[in-house]
Computed example of a mutant assay.
Amino acid sequence: MIVAVGTKNPNKIRAVEDAYRLFGIPARVVPAPRPLTTPPQPVGLEAVLKGAVERAKAALQAVEKAEHGVGIEAGVVEAGRVHLDITIAAIVDVGGRTTIGFGPAFQIPPPFLSQVLSGVEMGAVAEQYFKRPSIGYREGLIGVLTKRRVTRYHLNLAAVAMALTPRLPHNSQLYLKP
């Protein structure tokens, strides 16, 4: 199966490859450009979800013979009185079916919050703060905060695995529309 993923980020591409492999689904993962309409830093659950779905749909359209399009979007959500960085994955197939999965979320450091809420990408804020280039393409902010015990790859992998769960053959009856 050809799986198009709406990103050039190696963390996301590897996470998609590994999530499909985890469930024994043979997949050739092909990167595709992310749509220009997605903001660099979505804020709010609906914006993060919309970004993931738009990436998935655009990837599916961009890659010839793709059967699935995968979009992974990280963004900011408010829970109680804290703001969290959450990763959402969407998988869209050629029949139009969309499945969604969330990865773990972590609390955004307060010194980053005002910039991130104003639309500055979390990776850019982290790079500036820690004086390290390309954090988002490497371990991600979570990787820096946890000393690489948990990385951006892990968050992406979990989100894609959760989005694949309704598509697993043994779950097909559970997720059919009545």
Rank of each mutant, 00 (worst) to 15 (best):
V70D: 06
R28V: 12
P35S: 13
V70C: 06
E127D: 14
S134K: 15
G51A: 15
V76E: 06
V53M: 03
N9L: 00
V70M: 05
E46H: 09
K8D: 09
P111N: 05
I86W: 04
L22P: 00
V48L: 10
V43T: 14
D85G: 13
Q128G: 05
P35Q: 12
R55H: 08
P109T: 08
V29D: 00
K12M: 03
A27T: 08
I91Y: 02
L117F: 08
E73A: 14
P110R: 12
S114T: 14
V92D: 04
A32T: 05
E67P: 05
P42K: 09
L49R: 15
G119W: 06
A90I: 04
Y20T: 01
M1H: 05
E127L: 12
E121S: 14
A56D: 02
A19Y: 02
N9Y: 00
V48G: 10
G123H: 03
P109N: 09
V30G: 11
T99V: 09
S118C: 06
R97A: 14
L60C: 14
E78C: 10
P40S: 15
N9M: 00
A58S: 15
E127M: 09
P31W: 04
E67A: 10
N11Q: 10
A124N: 12
G44A: 13
G95H: 10
V63T: 11
V3M: 03
A58W: 01
L22Y: 14
L60P: 11
P10R: 07
T99Q: 08
